[in-house]
Design a protein around this nucleic acid. Structure first.
Lengths: 230, 230
DNA sequence: ACCTGTGAAAGCCTTCACAGCA
DNA sequence: TGCTGTGAAGGCTTTCACAGGT
């Protein structure tokens, strides 16, 4: 039974590459609807998202047929569908472990709240930091930094399924293990280490040095672009 | 002339997917050599990097034949080759625009210095911040935050080719244009906007909310994994 | 015996180009 | 006419499996 690509959309098997772009479309559509625009063509939406229109149409076709031929997409309706697909219509409690500069930046980051994420726990190992208050989100909600010792208690209390690791590299694997042990199934890791977990846990990694190194690679390439062995 | 894949490595056309993994291998090899390990097999290195050994061998084969059959790779030698390939044997001056929490975190980030990056400029629009000193890197080097008005002067002075944008979304495109105008050709963008530039400028994007949204998507999937149309 | 390096196969993603519908 | 939705083609990436050295 050679199960073709055609059925994938129906079986809700949205390609990973498409999933990774949905948040961009989501953001662009938010801006567009806020400006009062009602209808948008694949060409326009693609340009604003930095992708080709063919790619955009393919991406959207995995969600369903939400456009109108000859016209375009109803921006608000499409926005809602993407929101639903991404699970942003519900509320995701998130705990952040490691409240250095980066952790602070994440806690303050305004972009979370209106996308369904709520920072409900700030955890750090440094006794100096514990008890300190941090403003999370844009509307001035205040949260106290809690002790790493209480990680399990905190995670269980707030029922977080998503954890963010912004600790030094040395602490990350241990924190990861503990998060997973108490039920966290999705982890966003900013520490520069490869985390090992069971397969059912989703780990995504953001590595600042890595990004710069990729840029440096291309930058260097400019210089010796013509040192080619023919 | 159907130019085959086989020549790609020689013509220095390393696949993008491989380039994106080289920094990981680089980091893992650094740790390994620091522990005094001399020889490493593709299996070991792959495990520590979180990839399959076949993938690792293919990746390394694009750089050249640096292993020994029946034995493995000389860790220090391989590390050097990757370093050279990534352009980390030279020194890249980097300017950071936007010195909020995130900008601070980036400035302080210890991982840059020993990977060939040197933060040489901190720029912000907020008059309150200008003149404030920030410790960059691990060895306590001190840098003063400078005014956005002087961006062009600063970039030209320090000869930066790489710029990091950590400003609010609204300011990002303008900052990008100005950086490009004064010769920056690689940009790492943390602002949640799609930047438009000429094709010869390399832009990489790190979007914190996007990463969480991708996790949320998969998290949601767990719940309704069985709501499948058959 | 062992482990690298690599063609070949399989799978995934993007682009093309146009049928199909408003 | 105009724009979406989508097969088909093409390109890129990963995996397989083994030939080729040590």
């Amino acid at each position: 039974m050679p199960n073709s690509r055609a059925n994938d959309a129906l079986r809700r098997g949205i390609p990973e590459a498409t999933v990774a772009r949905l948040p961009i479309y989501h953001r662009v559509l938010s801006q567009i609807t806020e400006r009062g625009i009602v209808t948008v063509s694949s060409e326009e939406l693609a340009a604003a998202s930095g992708v080709s229109s063919a790619k955009l149409r393919k991406d959207l076709s995995f969600l369903g047929s939400y456009g109108t031929r000859g016209v375009g997409y109803d921006a608000a309706y499409l926005l809602y569908q993407i929101q639903r697909e991404l699970g942003l219509t519900q509320d995701w409690p998130v705990v952040i472990v490691g409240v250095g500069n980066l952790g602070h930046a994440l806690a303050n980051y305004g972009g979370f709240a209106n996308r369904g994420f709520r920072v409900v726990g700030l955890i750090d190992a440094d006794p100096e930091l514990i008890g300190e208050t941090v403003t999370v989100g844009r509307d001035g909600e205040i949260l106290k930094i809690q002790s790493l010792n209480d990680l399990e208690k905190i995670v269980n209390e707030v029922d977080a399924l998503i954890g963010v690791i912004a600790t030094p590299a040395a602490a990350a694997q241990d924190v990861c293990d503990r998060l997973v042990d108490c039920g966290v199934t999705s982890i966003l890791n900013f520490a520069p280490v490869v985390l090992t977990t069971t397969l059912d846990v989703h780990v995504r990694k953001v590595d600042l040095a890595t990004e710069l190194q990729i840029l440096a690679f291309h930058e260097q390439r400019r210089g010796d672009a013509h040192e080619v062995i023919v």
